[in-house]
Design a protein around this nucleic acid. Structure first.
Lengths: 231, 231
DNA sequence: ACCTGAACACCGTTCAAGT
DNA sequence: ACCTGAACACCGTTCAAGT
């Protein structure tokens, strides 16, 4: 009674099925049983093509991010190019919330390396050089990944506009309750009016401004004592 | 043969046991069975005091972050106060890597609200006001959470100095392979020499520089079309 | 009211048996 | 070489029965 298989199994077809299931049923809905049922095969069949569930999730995220990076138009203005890239990642995670959680799970996965590279080349074009490049790169990448994960988690809990509003009101109320400072309370009231995408872009601009501005770094001796030097 | 219970069960004792298990056995080692065995009670006993495993993880993370926020010394210089707070969170996540993953999972959880508040009050003290406050706050919070999650994930995979070095070499090699730009390759070679804690602080300083510097924000009409206005 | 632990409805992964 | 699906070793959560 299951749909008959038309093609042989392959890593690509398995990953494609995984993305479809994640988009439809969410992260909790991704089970090996669901994937193999979708492909009309036995539960153990996929283990000939993928290492396991972790590999499956990383490959699915790379499928989504890979398309974004390939499609990202490269503006002549390097700042604008970085904004476009960041927004592309944001929109992709908005459309596929499970990617947001996945990118925070493993720094070495292909999708994250793609983002590092995309950000890296554009920062070079912006004129960032030497030791400032890894610093600015990690700042921007970590901000993008952090914001995307938080937005995706929020989108997962409150998918439609009404529940989103209720969610934000609850957040604003809780926050206002925590602090009596009138300025903080005012900021809390602004939460329910904000647009996630706008706010995300505002953060990108803050990091861009900070990356080109000369900043008063303190000497490293004073702060880098606990973890110490590696090796 | 199990150790006899000396006290009655309570939410605090359950959360304390959860933190101990997470620190010892990692996130994969946290099972309801492990918690109840540690407390020498039946598997279903904890459900009288906590909602479930999600609640348990959120409460454990709040336990760790709550202590950090309470202990964070408040420097008179508002920039230094922000650096101290960020480093406190970073160090806590370095010591308890599972917290890094947990904070990215749910924006409304107590631990994340604590961080929002701590960052918010210090930004006000720095002179950030009005609409710039939520923008700067979300930028900093999302950067802290993103960087902490990435660092924690790396620390989980490579706990000691030797495996960390091998890990970074592999990352640098993969990155250099992806791009032929000599400047990017040079940046990739710098990866294996960097210190995570130093780089984290450099990112905080970039953010601080960008928050006080006037930056060339573009008009919102041009970018905020997809998600649209809420409500 | 709180605790117990068997039972339930699931998981990911393995592996002998087939093609 | 690839696929099948039963079997294995786990999960989180529920709930009748006890105290």
């Amino acid at each position: 009674m299951t749909t008959r298989r038309s093609d042989a199994l392959s890593r690509e077809r398995i990953v494609e099925a995984t993305i479809q299931i994640l988009d439809t049923a969410g992260e909790d809905g991704l089970t090996v049983r669901a994937v193999t049922a979708h492909l009309a095969t036995g539960r153990g069949a996929i283990y000939h093509h993928v290492a396991g569930k972790d590999d499956l999730l990383a490959a699915a995220a790379d499928g989504v991010i890979g398309r974004v990076m390939a499609a990202a138009a490269d503006d002549e203005d390097p700042k604008q190019a970085i904004r476009t890239l960041a927004l592309g990642i944001f929109d992709a995670i908005d459309a596929h919330p499970w990617v947001g959680a996945q990118l925070s799970r493993e720094p070495l996965q292909p999708a994250v390396l793609r983002i590092w590279t995309g950000v890296g080349v554009r920062l070079v074009r912006l004129g960032v050089r030497g030791a400032a490049l890894p610093d600015a790169g990690s700042a921007l990448v970590n901000y993008i990944l952090g914001a995307a994960a938080q937005h995706a988690a929020g989108a997962r809990r409150a998918p439609d506009a009404t529940s989103r509003q209720a969610y934000l009101d609850r957040l604003a109320a809780q926050w206002a309750e925590l602090d009596t400072d009138p300025l903080v309370r005012e900021a809390a009231s602004l939460i329910s009016e904000h647009d996630d995408r706008e706010q995300f872009l505002a953060g990108v601009d803050i990091f861009l401004a900070g990356s080109v501005a000369p900043h008063d770094r303190q000497v490293s001796d004073k702060t880098g004592s606990q973890t110490g030097v590696i090796g």
